[in-house]
Simulated assay, not measured.
Amino acid sequence: MFKQHKIIFSAAILYTVLILYFILFGFGRIHHVENTSGYTFLLLPDGFFELPSPSDLLHPTLMDLVTIGNIAAFIPFGIAVPLLYRIKFTRFIVWFILSIFLIETVQALTYLGSFDVNDVIQNSFGAIIGFGTYRLGIHAKNGWRRIAAMGFSAIVLLLGVWGICGGIDRVFTKVQGPFTALNELGDSAGNPVKETKPYRFTVGGQDIEPQFNVYSAEGKEKAVYTYKLNKKEFYFYLQYGIPDQSDFKGNISVSVDGQQILFNSEKYQAHAPAIFKWYFEQVNELTITVEGNEKVWDIGYRGMKYFWN
């Protein structure tokens, strides 16, 4: 028993040293120190429930691997510590979180990384899975059965945390709602906007067939469309271009609450349709100005909402 305890203790020490090396010095952290000018403390959790989906793992990105690694790499600590010392879960997780806080602080103060509370949470998930693995597998009768039981328990608990996190992420993450065409709203005076019915035309040799609306100067030098939106948190969309078989002359301007967010004239436009997309936290008044032969189409927005709204 003493020999087994010694082997586990030695393996735990070596694994801890390896983890500390990757946390403090791995991934070229030393080379980034010279380019760091200040401390970075990320104290608010953001997206720590956004674990990669099974489909994401078919073509994983670096961040997918980092997220999974932040959890999986700390599972062994939840197994090794209670194997070495009799310790209750509450005491274990408190000491573990304090240790991760200390390591994250050292990272930030030495410019070897940042203090990221997301890492603290994800690392703690791993330790919790490990402790649960220990409790479920320790009652097996012999060594090989115990190893198999712990391995199976680790996989089940990891999948369970994965599923729970995915559910929580879905509940608390806003998604884009259905598209609302701008012409469905009244203008600033509450009157319906006329002459925005979609029709086909060609821009840069491409056949354009708008689905919702078309805005233009309609033979005048300039047309101004103003809307009182009073909307919060949405994505705004439009497409624009100067049609073929017309003088390549015109421009578009979009202003929000008196601040211009888009201006493009024939001087800067290519002979091809362009797409404009912008995220707004809040908009009271939206103004679109179209001059010359410019065409603007499929103008609208998608409000951000929770799936249960």
Rank of each mutant, 00 (worst) to 15 (best):
L262A: 03
K194M: 11
P52D: 01
F2Y: 10
N191Q: 06
F179M: 06
G300N: 10
W308S: 09
F212P: 01
F152G: 08
R86S: 09
K3P: 00
Q211F: 02
I261N: 06
L229Y: 04
P45Q: 08
V161S: 14
L157R: 09
L58Q: 12
F234M: 10
T226H: 00
I75S: 11
R200I: 10
N191A: 11
L84K: 13
G160I: 02
F276M: 01
A189I: 06
N213G: 00
A270D: 09
Y85F: 15
Y279Q: 04
I288D: 01
Y21V: 03
Q245P: 01
T173C: 10
V256R: 05
L109T: 12
F92A: 05
Q211A: 12
F248V: 01
N183G: 09
V283N: 08
M304L: 15
Q211I: 02
I252M: 04
E233P: 05
K3I: 13
I103R: 00
G205N: 01
Y240V: 07
V256I: 08
Q239R: 13
V296I: 01
N230P: 05
G166Y: 01
K141P: 02
K277H: 00
D298F: 00
E195F: 08
T110F: 03
I121R: 12
V224M: 04
E184I: 03
N70W: 10
D298H: 02
G163A: 10
K174E: 13
E221G: 15
F236I: 11
N142P: 09
F263W: 12
G143P: 06
K267S: 00
Y199E: 06
H5A: 11
R145W: 02
T36E: 08
I19V: 09
F101W: 10
G303C: 01
H139A: 07
L182H: 05
A80S: 10
A274K: 01
T105Q: 12
I100P: 04
L182F: 07
E233R: 14
E209K: 13
F248K: 09
L286E: 11
D298V: 01
G113W: 07
K88T: 09
L286H: 07
L57W: 03
F101G: 05
F179E: 08
S37D: 13
A73K: 10
T36F: 02
F248I: 06
F179P: 06
G126T: 06
G28V: 10
Y237T: 02
D247Q: 13
I7C: 00
Y227C: 07
K305R: 14
G151F: 11
S99Y: 04
S10N: 06
E34S: 14
A12Y: 09
I100L: 02
D46K: 15
I7M: 08
R146S: 05
E34C: 07
K194C: 15
H31S: 15
A127R: 11
A272R: 13
Q239F: 12
E233G: 11
I138L: 12
L238M: 14
F152I: 15
H59A: 15
Q107I: 04
F74M: 14
S124Y: 13
F41R: 10
A181D: 14
G258P: 10
T110M: 01
L58R: 08
Q239E: 03
D207V: 13
L57G: 06
K194L: 13
Q282A: 12
G38P: 04
L112E: 05
L62N: 13
I138V: 14
N284S: 14
S265V: 00
L65C: 11
I275R: 03
T105R: 02
